[in-house]
């Protein structure tokens, strides 16, 4: 093979032809592995969810399995109070989490974008929870919130609050407690993305604004913020979808409790399919969740005029 190639006398022309001739099939070959994987393990499961949503399907009650038409959907919208409750909680969870994460993430990014002594170390430390998993975050905050040996005990030692308080098992405190735990690892995500985008703001703009006597706040408002707009829109959207879908943290931290107080829609769906094996109904719920998500994302992108005015 190698010899044959070496012998070929005019090396250029055939190679030229190959370089210009390959592209026709090459791109398809290159995307084939990705496309096949996604067809098999995303598209096909999604379609089967749509299919099951029209079925009564429960492996533990095979005698009832069969075509159900829109029964599952009518049940969701007319007879299932849990659907409404969990959807409302999901919305609250996503809005609060993404809002706070963006606020703190933006502030944090602006701070560590300054030049100061110890910046590299400061960045590494404040970003570090980003790498921590939902389950590990839960483990850490379970230790912190533990009623016997958690922070409340030491606070009580100092005269703040009572002994034996468990923030995770009280319906009035569980929401803020879970929010704080998720903020802890969510803020660095925004901070990293925004900091990355801040690197591309032209310094000249600030200098020009300086010459014109604009205050630092005005510079932020008129230079930094418009520059960050697209990055902020995209990262809030991605994060909102992620916060909506992700069940790791709540599943392990509160298990959706106490008394269902922290059950999001996906958590409810997971329980329906994994614990009650009601796959048909879970699939219908999934379909509804998917439509809601797609609808909200489209509206959000439209309203925020993503990518416009540039």
């Amino acid at each position: 093979m190698a010899q044959a190639a070496a012998v070929a006398k005019p090396p250029r022309p055939p190679r030229r032809r190959r370089a210009s001739a390959t592209p026709r099939r090459l791109p398809y070959l290159l995307i084939a592995p990705a496309a096949l994987l996604m067809l098999g393990f995303i598209a096909y499961p999604v379609l089967s969810v749509f299919y099951y949503s029209l079925q009564e399907y429960n492996p533990t009650k095979p005698w009832r399995n069969g075509f159900a038409g829109f029964d599952n959907f009518t049940h969701i919208f007319t007879e299932d109070p849990l659907f409404r409750d969990t959807l409302v909680f999901s919305a609250k969870w996503v809005v609060v989490e993404v809002g706070l994460q963006l606020m703190f993430g933006l502030a944090l990014a602006l701070i560590v974008n300054q030049t100061f002594v110890g910046r590299a170390l400061g960045r590494a430390l404040v970003f570090s929870p980003w790498a921590v998993s939902g389950v590990l975050t839960s483990a850490i905050w379970v230790l912190l919130y533990n009623s016997q040996t958690g922070v409340t005990r030491y606070l009580a030692d100092m005269g703040i609050g009572d002994y034996g308080v468990s923030w995770l098992s009280d319906t009035s405190t569980v929401f803020p407690a879970a929010v704080v735990a998720d903020l802890w690892r969510g803020v660095p995500f925004f901070a990293i993305l925004i900091l990355a985008d801040l690197q591309s703001v032209s310094k000249d703009l600030y200098e020009a604004a300086e010459v014109d006597g604009a205050s630092r706040f005005k510079q932020f408002l008129h230079i930094t913020l418009p520059h960050l707009k697209d990055a902020i829109i995209l990262s809030t959207l991605l994060r909102a979808v992620w916060e909506f879908n992700n069940v790791d943290l709540l599943y392990t931290l509160t298990g959706g409790g106490p008394a269902g107080a922290t059950t999001t829609l996906p958590l409810y769906i997971a329980n329906t399919s994994v614990e009650s094996h009601d796959f048909g109904y879970a699939s219908a719920l999934t379909t509804v969740a998917f439509v809601i998500l797609l609808f909200c994302s489209t509206v959000y992108l439209r309203l925020s005029k993503f990518g416009g005015e540039k």
Partner: peptide, 14 residues
């Protein structure tokens, strides 16, 4: 679009 597909919700078909 695949960004909107919740992996957690595809557990059963997967």
């Amino acid at each position: 679009c695949s960004q909107f597909v919740p992996g957690a919700l595809l557990l059963v078909p997967l």
